[in-house]
C-alpha cells in the first residue's frame, strides 16, 4: 500500500505528440501521474483528451514521444513486456464495451479465468464482489443488452477492476449516470485510491465529480495543441491566469461578439 508520494510517478508522459496518422492533435505533451493519486484529464469536446487516453493505454501509437507505465514504455514495448504492461492497468471505455454475448458476471470473470489459477467457485465469488462494489450483484446473470446504459458502465468498471490493477483508466465514467450513482462511483474511486493505492486516470468533464475526487487535473485544448493548465482543480477554478480555464470551471459560455 502506498500513500501518494510526490516524486514517485507511476506514469510518465514525455514530449508526446498525440494524433492519428499524419494529423497531430496535441503536441509536446509532458506530465506525470503520481502513484495512488486520482488524476483527471480535462478538456472540452473534441479537445483530444480521449485521443491522449488511447495513446496512454497503448491502443494507438503516438506520433512522437514516450509513455512510461511503471517504468516501461508502452509505445515501443512488444511481446511479453507489452503483455506485462497491459496487465498493470484496467480500462473502462466510454460506452462500456462489454461483451454482448456474455452475462455481466461472465464479463467480469473473463480476465480472472484467463490470468489467475483460482478455481471456479473462487472466481465466481470475486466476480460477484466486483459487481457488488458497483451495486450490480442482483444483475449477475443479465446480458449487457438487458440492463440500462448506466448499469453497463458500472459493470464495465467492475470488469476493469477484476484483476485489482495498479492503474485504472476511466473514460467519461459519470456521463449517463444519475447523480446518486455518480456520487457512489466517486466514493468507490476514492476508497480504492486511498485504501489500496490504486492510481486512477480519469477522462471527464463532469465538474462536480472532478471537484469531489480529483487530486490533480490537466486541461488539454486542441486549439492550442497541448496542456493549457495543470494543478489542483479548486485552485485552477479560483485563480488560473488563463481566462478560458476559469470560464471552463465556471461553466460560462463564450462571450457573444458585440
Amino acid at each position: 500500500m502506498a500513500a501518494a508520494l510526490p516524486d514517485d510517478p507511476i506514469i510518465r508522459v514525455r514530449d508526446v505528440t498525440a494524433g492519428y496518422g499524419e494529423t497531430a492533435i496535441l503536441e509536446h505533451v509532458t506530465f506525470d501521474v503520481r502513484r495512488g493519486e486520482i488524476f483527471v484529464i480535462l478538456g472540452g469536446s473534441g479537445s483530444g483528451k480521449s485521443t491522449l487516453l488511447k495513446h496512454m493505454i497503448g491502443l494507438e501509437p503516438t506520433l512522437a514521444g514516450s509513455i512510461l507505465i511503471d517504468g516501461d514504455d508502452i509505445v515501443t514495448a512488444e511481446g511479453d513486456l507489452r503483455q506485462a504492461i497491459l496487465r498493470r492497468f484496467g480500462v473502462m471505455y466510454q460506452s462500456g464495451a462489454l461483451f454482448g454475448s456474455m452475462t455481466l458476471a461472465e464479463n467480469v470473470r473473463l480476465p480472472l479465468e484467463e490470468y489467475t489459477d483460482l478455481d471456479d467457485g473462487e472466481i465466481a465469488l470475486i466476480a460477484r464482489m466486483k459487481l457488488a462494489m458497483v451495486g450490480l450483484d442482483a444483475y449477475t446473470g443479465h446480458l449487457p443488452a438487458e440492463v440500462s446504459g448506466g448499469m453497463q458502465k458500472r459493470a464495465a468498471i467492475a470488469r476493469a477492476l477484476a484483476l485489482d490493477p495498479k492503474i485504472v483508466f476511466l473514460d467519461e465514467p459519470s456521463a449517463g449516470l444519475d447523480p446518486i450513482t455518480s456520487a457512489e462511483l466517486d466514493a468507490l474511486v476514492r476508497r480504492l485510491a486511498r485504501g489500496l493505492g490504486v492510481t486512477f486516470v480519469i477522462v471527464s468533464h463532469e465538474l462536480p465529480s472532478i471537484f469531489a475526487i480529483a487530486d490533480r487535473v490537466i486541461m488539454v485544448d486542441r486549439a492550442r495543441r497541448g496542456i493549457v493548465a495543470e494543478g489542483d482543480p479548486r485552485e485552477l477554478c479560483d485563480s488560473s491566469p488563463d481566462p478560458w480555464v476559469r470560464r471552463f470551471f465556471h461553466r460560462e459560455a463564450e462571450p457573444l461578439p458585440a
Binding site: A132, A138, T140, L196
Partner: peptide, 24 residues
C-alpha cells in the same frame, strides 16, 4: 486487519454474497 483493508472488507455483506441474486 489494517484499517485500509478492513474498510475494503467492510463494504461487503458476506451473507448476501453467498446467494446468487440473479439465477438463470
Amino acid at each position: 486487519l489494517a484499517p485500509a483493508f478492513a474498510a475494503l472488507l467492510g463494504q461487503f455483506d458476506a451473507e448476501r454474497l453467498a446467494r446468487d441474486l440473479d439465477p438463470a
